[in-house]
Amino acid sequence: MYKQTQYDSWLIELSNYFIKEYGYQMITMSKDNTEIWMVNPLNKVNPIVMLSSLPISRFNAEAIGKHRESLAIVFKTMAEGINISVYPEKDYITEKNVVVGPLYKSNSLALSQFKNIETVLKESNNPDRALSKAVINLKRTVQQSQKKSFVKAFPVTNAISTICIVIFSIAVYLRMSGIDSTTTAVMLGAFYKRFILDAHEYWRFITAGFLHVDFVHIMMNLFALRNLGSMLEPVYGHKKFLAILLAGIIGGNAFVYIVDSGVVGLGLSGGLFALLGALLVYLIETQAIKNPKVLRQVVSILMINLFISLMPGVSMAAHIGGFQAGVFLGFVFSKRSSWSTLRKQVAVLGSIFAIAIIYIMTQKPYTTVDLALDNRVIDAWSQIGLKSYADRLLRLLF
């Protein structure tokens, strides 16, 4: 037998092989790092592959089966595939439970499609160094694979990210020119009720979602968008995914309009919470939430975001408004046949709710006036050469 680090390095090397040679995605890794799950829906024979450093005799068939079914639901593929152990125990080998080692592979028809897999693993005189090298190689492969596939598979997520980065770059330039962050935010389309009411700039309900003036803020939001986009854009399609995101931004800012009249609001969080709401509905629809691992991840994500919502300077109203918009559209866009009546009911309820929100907004025709901020924005527009727009604001606001 070998040191555990030898098995660990083989596990990582085999993962690298499946990603690099056959286009698999690494989906999950167990807490003790003895199990890695790979998915490639385009592979009709083995769409889901489980790799393990444990001997086959220690496989939990029931747990493996449930996790395989959950992944099949989420990635819309068959729950077929093989379970590969790098531990050289050959007594429990079957057609679906196989072993791969240095210059050895099980005699399995399902495994035969992976050419030269028996040449991937090699014994090492220094397993610790081999493990470190395997991790570095896997990280490099995953980064290259993600970079290639993400651009093609998630155009909306990439487009939104690019828009946010471009606007952030403009914000950085304005701040370097001596304009303070709040003035910069209002100039670039932040939610500001005073300008919406008196200058009729209703487009701020949308533009605020693409605006960030703080580096940490934009990095956190783009990281969250990338993670949620990689899960939900393939599920809902590009148009519906964009609709959920925009509905969350508008819904979040509508709630801010009602509860907080003087705030300058910006950021993608309303749209992100809409995606969280839609994700929750999707997991319930597909029953993937019954999987203990999935349920723990969902609870963890919701708790983290609840904590973020309670932090100073963060708008709870925007998060609630975005989340409810995502939940509504998650039900409306669902495909489960038994939910046909529920979809219609939610659509009607959502329409009534939207009308009620609009009515409440019309009953709030007032706001806190910050004359100093208004004057700074007008002066800043004049300084950068847009005096006609500055004059318009001056005429409407004073």
Results as ranks from 00 to 15, higher is better:
249 I>S: 03
262 G>Y: 10
295 L>F: 15
300 S>G: 01
340 S>L: 14
10 W>C: 05
272 L>Q: 07
258 I>T: 06
255 F>V: 09
100 V>K: 04
157 T>G: 03
199 A>K: 02
258 I>E: 06
383 Q>V: 03
301 I>G: 03
296 R>C: 09
161 S>R: 03
118 E>N: 04
280 L>D: 00
255 F>I: 10
275 L>G: 02
93 I>A: 06
348 V>W: 10
53 S>G: 11
135 V>H: 03
133 K>D: 09
81 G>R: 02
115 K>A: 13
342 L>R: 09
160 I>K: 03
147 K>A: 09
133 K>V: 12
332 V>H: 01
366 Y>A: 09
351 S>W: 11
210 F>I: 12
41 P>V: 14
318 A>T: 11
138 L>V: 12
111 L>F: 08
280 L>Q: 03
220 M>A: 13
160 I>D: 00
239 K>C: 08
292 P>G: 12
82 I>E: 01
131 L>A: 04
209 G>I: 13
366 Y>N: 08
99 V>H: 01
337 S>M: 10
25 Q>A: 03
25 Q>S: 04
128 D>P: 01
130 A>I: 00
134 A>C: 15
8 D>G: 03
250 I>T: 04
323 F>S: 00
206 I>Q: 02
200 H>S: 12
196 I>S: 08
344 K>Y: 14
106 S>E: 06
206 I>Y: 00
314 V>L: 04
217 H>Q: 02
151 V>N: 07
333 F>Q: 07
364 K>Y: 15
255 F>E: 05
217 H>E: 13
382 S>R: 07
322 G>N: 07
248 G>Q: 04
190 A>F: 10
342 L>M: 15
31 K>W: 10
107 N>L: 08
53 S>E: 03
305 N>A: 08
78 M>E: 15
205 F>P: 02
134 A>L: 14
74 V>K: 01
257 Y>P: 01
235 V>W: 11
383 Q>T: 06
28 T>D: 10
46 N>V: 05
273 F>T: 12
378 I>G: 01
224 A>E: 13
54 L>F: 08
302 L>K: 10
356 A>Y: 11
250 I>L: 08
53 S>M: 03
59 F>T: 03
59 F>D: 03
237 G>E: 07
286 T>R: 15
144 Q>N: 12
247 A>I: 11
153 A>T: 09
207 T>V: 14
285 E>T: 07
187 M>S: 02
310 L>E: 10
126 N>A: 10
7 Y>S: 01
159 A>H: 02
290 K>T: 15
369 V>C: 04
335 K>N: 15
108 S>D: 05
248 G>E: 06
313 G>L: 06
153 A>L: 08
96 K>S: 14
251 G>W: 11
377 V>E: 00
81 G>Y: 05
109 L>E: 11
135 V>A: 06
140 R>M: 09
